[in-house]
């Protein structure tokens, strides 16, 4: 008897409100931890400056200035470096019992993962905007139109959402922030062995098959084509549509591979 009345008074929140509550918390944490924003921004800016002015001079990409080649790659790979922070954040939530509390509440378990991934993607949008602005400041220019550039930026956000599920999974598996940082080392081969900073053609032949076919390369090439148009297409074996299509396929594949794992892992008893 008592149980039924108790149940009636505590129905628990639905999917959307609980996802919003979880997302709001992640965003508040970011906004109220200025060192996260300042350190992240400075770090990104420094690396961009190093590539642009230190390495850039000796990297020939043919047909276009290195800064126009670099910035699309740099902005796209920002997704991965920001994602390592998300993995650490998720691992911390496991470590400090926050996820235990959420899992003991009468809410859909999907909502926690949905809230987290959406919030992290929104924060990523901010980081991408800052990085892009710095890119323009050091001389990057769009050689297509506004619509294509906005599409490029939108694609980056979509890639970020897809990779977010990989980072959430890593955080859940690692279960503490340090282990999560260790697992995050995977971002180095993904970013550097790609077309992000140098043309893939300059890499040794054994490395090229990976470099040419891994998701970051097609994502970077899609963003590069959308912002540089024919100048970049001339250097690549395929057209813009191919890279955009392939990168979207990768996006779907990443979500299909990692979202179920993350949700199962979170819900596992």
């Amino acid at each position: 008897m008592t149980a039924t009345t108790t149940v009636a008074t505590r129905p628990g929140a639905g999917l959307a409100p609980s996802a919003v509550a979880v997302a709001l918390r992640t965003i508040r944490k970011f906004v109220r931890t200025p060192q996260l924003i300042v350190v992240g921004t400075i770090q990104g800016a420094l690396f961009l400056l190093i590539f642009r002015y230190v390495f850039g001079g000796s990297i020939g990409v043919g047909g276009l200035p290195y800064v126009d080649f670099l910035v699309p790659g740099f902005v796209t790979t920002t997704i991965l470096f920001a994602g390592t922070g998300a993995a650490a954040g998720v691992a911390e939530d496991v470590e400090h019992g926050f996820f235990d509390r959420l899992r003991s509440l009468p809410i859909p378990r999907l909502s926690v993962m949905a809230g987290r991934s959406l919030a992290d993607t929104a924060l990523l949008g901010f980081t991408l905007a800052v990085t892009t602005a710095i890119g323009f400041a050091v001389g990057f220019r769009v050689h297509t139109d506004l619509a294509a550039s906005l599409a490029a930026f939108g694609l980056c956000v979509v890639y970020g959402f897809a990779f977010e599920w990989m980072f959430i999974t890593m955080g859940l598996v690692a279960r503490n922030a340090q282990a999560a940082q260790g697992l995050s080392m995977i971002v180095f081969p993904l970013t550097f062995v790609s077309s992000a900073y140098v043309p893939v053609a300059t890499m040794p032949s054994w490395m090229r098959p990976f470099a040419e076919n891994q998701p970051i390369t097609v994502m970077v090439d899609a963003v590069r084509c959308l912002t540089q148009g024919s100048r970049v297409e001339a250097l690549l074996p395929h057209h813009t549509a191919y890279y955009v299509g392939m990168s979207l396929l990768w996006t779907v594949a990443l979500i299909a591979a990692f979202a179920p794992v993350a949700i199962a892992r979170f819900s596992h008893r």
Binding site: R10, P11, G12, H96, S104, P106
Partner: peptide, 11 residues
Amino acid sequence: RVIGLAGQSAA
């Protein structure tokens, strides 16, 4: 719907 949990670490 019936329980409230306070674990070992302040979550």
